[in-house]
Simulated assay, not measured.
Amino acid sequence: MPSLEQTCGRGGSGQLSVPRLRRDTPERAGLDPEEIRRLVSEVHDLTSGSRPWAAGAVLVVGRGPYVAVEEAVGWAVRYASYDPETDEGVELPPDSRVAMTADTPFDLASLTKLFTSVAAVQQIERGTLGIDARVGAYLPDFRAAARHGITVRQLLTHTSGLRPELPLYDCADDAERLELLRAEAPVGVPGTHRYSDLNLLLLQHVLERITGRTLDVLIHDGITRPLGMTATHFGPCPGAAATEDQRRPWAKSDRGMLRGVVHDENAWALGGVAGHAGLFSTGHDLAVFCRALLCGGAYGPARVLGPDFVELLLSPPGLGFAVDQPWFMGELAGRGAAGHTGFTGTSLVLDPATDTFLVLLANTVHPRRRTPDSRPRAAAGTRVARAVREL
């Protein structure tokens, strides 16, 4: 595996000097142009036809400091609504649709968890948060978590035993939502993996308690502002790709066609800022995020984590990040690749072994949610893995 010095460079002072991303050819990036051409063609196919995988998508692939492809396909807004009688979207007239562009922001859904995890590891690096400390040490009023000895590491690795979610969207007010979280006890065996949004919601409360700042401020000040990720923020985000005509019974609330407001019902009930969902971002900004992690936490003049703490974040089983998961990474999995998916159709994968990243953002829930299908993500990961050339 290339060293940080080889892939990111060092300045004359010996400090890491990370070149900013720039667009260049696949060949310059050390990627096979034919595999990349096929990948772009396959992503175009995903948005075509009467029942496409997604209404639109943005694809960004890079290696080292080079962005080899940045492609937008399909529609950011294609449908006015969903018709349950025909089980099809009601198409907008062509002149009322909104084309996808490379700068279109997406509702990141669970990719938000990655930013919450980085914010937590920043506090671990500073010594204000213990990775194996009990949540009850920071949140004694969260009675069930304290009683069952849930730890910070368990929240970050989804091994707390907490159930996947709670119906916070059905609560009358914030006080009732908070009381549900405080009283929620594990239903699974602590130490065994059970993916749960509640882990990141509890972690949000821990971070806000120990810092005295809200999660949106922590992520902005500690991650997105220093990295220059100006298009990444919690909603509202009026220009974002549309998501769902959100109505019961297929959804958990009746909100109509959503665009620029968070899709996740619990994040919406919490005001749009939540540890598990709520961020909006673009393909380019996520490429910067990937590049910073591949370069040991630095990008340009900024550093958001030290290399040892990036290694802690990405080492199996991963803190917030999933590691080596073929179901959405394809053949990129197997050498320490890390990433995540989001319910709205978002995903990213970074591969430290080859200094390569893949961002595939799609609005797969437009006009309504369906059974998630990550086969196109896995196929994209396989294309990128096969494109990598020896440097």
Rank of each mutant, 00 (worst) to 15 (best):
S96E: 15
R97C: 03
R97Q: 10
V98D: 00
A99D: 04
A102E: 13
F106V: 13
F106K: 02
F106P: 02
D107R: 06
L108W: 02
L108I: 07
S110M: 01
S110Y: 00
S110W: 01
T112F: 08
L114Y: 01
T116W: 01
S117A: 15
A119N: 06
A120R: 07
Q122R: 06
E125T: 11
G127Q: 01
T128H: 14
L129E: 04
G130C: 07
I131K: 02
A133E: 14
A133M: 04
G136P: 05
G136H: 05
A137G: 15
L139A: 10
P140D: 05
D141Y: 10
F142N: 00
A144K: 05
H148E: 09
I150Y: 01
I150M: 03
T151I: 07
Q154W: 05
Q154R: 04
T159W: 11
S160D: 01
R163C: 12
E165W: 15
Y169Q: 06
Y169G: 00
D170E: 15
C171Y: 05
A172F: 10
A175N: 08
R177H: 02
L178I: 11
E179G: 08
L180M: 15
L181T: 07
A183W: 01
A183Q: 14
E184V: 11
A185I: 14
G188N: 08
G188C: 04
V189I: 15
P190F: 07
G191F: 13
H193W: 15
Y195R: 12
S196G: 07
S196I: 11
L198I: 09
N199S: 06
